[in-house]
């Protein structure tokens, strides 16, 4: 059992979860994820690691409420316990001196890219954050990034925002102002990953996306997270989650992500009816 140290709503739909998991915290690397189970008969939910504290022995993740399990997760409070918190899982992100790195993040990805940003900064890179939010009040952790990034650009539909369109349209504009852009890292919703990858393809920018297919065990056994990367089948849990965005078969990923939509909706409807206050 893993004690929850903190669970709070950051912005609408996005919640921060800090769990006591000392062994995981000792081994965490940027780009990895944990697998949590709320109860003994719940499903396993993969969450990108947003931060960790080896001294406190805690791991932090930011998750989006997107179904029955995440709704249950968002109802837990400090002191409650998770049945399982396994990790760190997945290959760590590649951290090296790339020159300038553009981080494109939206939704939970703003938190998920934070460990990589910290490591890339330590590796001497110049960092530019392009955060996509629908409205200014939905942006979080700006203060954390301010300490790491040389430039923060917010793409939001609010008037007065530097970019009022979706982040993928802003990428080329932001990239044009950066001389030695060596890499683009993207994390967030699948549409953002795909759209940014398509936007950087003509620019020839190496783009690494943190892929988020449906995952069941997270250790390469079930194959639920299979995806096609450059024509080869890969498992996002053990071969990724970082992949070259220009190699991903996006239509297939979207289809696979929606494979259980009916069951997910049915389960959620039942949960909504039965879990009365």
């Amino acid at each position: 059992m893993y004690e929850i140290l903190e669970r709070r709503r950051l912005v609408p739909n996005l919640h921060l979860l800090r769990v006591r998991a000392p062994e995981t915290a000792r081994a965490c690397r940027p780009g990895q994820f944990i697998m949590v189970m709320i109860g003994p008969d719940g499903e396993r939910v993969p969450l990108s690691i947003a931060d960790w504290d080896a001294v406190e022995g805690s791991v932090t993740a930011v998750f989006l409420i997107v179904g029955t399990s995440t709704q249950k997760l968002a109802r837990l409070r400090a002191g409650d316990r998770l049945h399982v918190c396994a990790g760190p899982l997945g290959k760590p992100s590649e951290i090296a001196g790339f020159g300038t790195v553009l981080l494109v993040a939206g939704c939970y990805g703003i938190a998920a890219l934070y460990p990589a940003a910290r490591a890339l900064r330590q590796a001497g890179n110049r960092l530019v954050l392009l955060a996509d939010v629908k409205a200014g009040h939905l942006l979080y952790w700006e203060d954390r990034y301010r300490n790491l990034c040389d430039r923060i650009v917010v793409a939001s539909r609010d008037p007065g925002a530097p970019f009022q369109e979706f982040a993928s349209h802003a990428v080329s504009n932001v990239a044009a102002k950066e001389a030695s852009l060596g890499r683009v890292l993207v994390s967030g919703c699948a549409y953002l990953l795909a759209a940014v990858s398509e936007a950087t393809r003509p620019l020839g920018l190496r783009t690494i996306v943190s892929l988020n297919p449906i995952m069941v065990d997270g250790t390469g056994m079930c194959g639920a997270c299979r995806c096609s990367i450059g024509g080869n089948t890969r498992f996002a849990c053990v071969d990724g989650p970082d992949f070259d965005g220009h190699q991903v078969d996006w239509p297939e990923l979207f289809r696979r992500r929606a494979a259980y939509l009916d069951d997910e909706v049915r389960s959620l409807c039942r949960f909504e009816k039965e879990s009365l206050p």
């Binding site: 739909n13 629908k134 939001s156 369109e165 919703c189 699948a190 549409y191 979207f254 992500r257 939509l261």
Partner: peptide, 28 residues
Amino acid sequence: PSACLVCADRNACREPKEGIRKTVEPTG
């Protein structure tokens, strides 16, 4: 929440985002 009303990508992102419509606080 009005972002989607004026967003150029609103039709393209509708299908990929079908799954996360199961959220509880619509922000668009």
